[in-house]
């Protein structure tokens, strides 16, 4: 087994954050608008059209640019010494530290250990009737998939096509889509777990769910 359970958990326990380093995109004078430890939010709204918290203003040639946060988190490693200074492009100004919650960590681990079968194109997806019955009956975890198995139906413009699974053999661990939903191209459809990794994955998930404090 190439992934060590304890290492993985230790990694997330010691630093349960996702750090986004904020660098200035071009030269200019920096005026900071946040303080160390301040909570900031990323873009919001249905179309993410409302900008996030104003982090700093970068001014070059009389053109002040409002640089807003793209992430939700807390300001860390703020370089207050840059206040009012002219900086070069690529200079780090601060880090936005986003604390990962239980579900985000599970999702990350699953993406590391599962094989994700993605939607080949924008369409509606269904399980084939036999697969749907089998999943319903035996629950997803016991359902084995081999390459070449016709598991999904892709429905687009009144035309249904059978999709043959072309990933590694394994157990269907996670279904990322709702039956009949319109799925964008590249979005995950199925998470397939190698049979030998299954107990390990279940154990990790179990431990995170019970031990992790959100």
């Amino acid at each position: 087994m190439d992934i060590n359970l304890n290492d993985l958990l230790r990694k997330y326990k010691s630093h349960p954050y996702e750090d986004h380093q904020i660098k200035v995109p071009h030269t200019g004078t920096v005026r900071l608008h946040v303080k160390e430890g301040q909570d900031v939010t990323g873009p919001s709204g249905q179309w993410r059209h409302r900008p996030g918290t104003l982090l700093y203003v970068l001014e070059r040639e009389g053109n002040p640019k409002r640089m807003t946060s793209k992430y939700t988190g807390t300001v860390a490693e703020l370089r207050t010494e840059l206040e009012g200074c002219f900086v070069q492009a690529g200079e780090p100004v601060m880090v936005i530290r986003h604390r990962l919650n239980k579900e985000e960590i599970i999702d990350r681990i699953l993406r590391e250990v599962l094989y994700v079968y993605a939607a080949p194109q924008r369409a509606r997806y269904f399980f084939t009737p036999e697969v749907a019955v089998a999943i319903d009956k035996d629950r997803a975890k016991a359902f084995n998939i081999r390459p070449g198995d016709e598991v999904l139906i892709m429905s687009l413009m009144k035309r249904d096509s059978l999709l043959a699974y072309d990933g590694p053999e394994g157990v269907l661990y996670k279904v990322y889509f709702k039956h009949g939903d319109l799925i964008e191209q590249g979005a995950p459809l199925l998470g397939i777990c190698a049979p030998d990794r299954l107990p390990f994955v279940e154990k990790v998930i179990q431990r995170i769910r019970t031990e992790w404090d959100d």
Binding site: R60, G62, N63
Partner: peptide
């Protein structure tokens, strides 16, 4: 008549450079 630059509102999307 102003000696300054402005940013295109689409700069993020299309990588437009600042304009004098």
């Amino acid at each position: 008549n102003e000696d300054k630059t402005v940013s295109c509102p689409n700069a993020e999307k299309y990588g437009c450079k600042d304009l004098w």
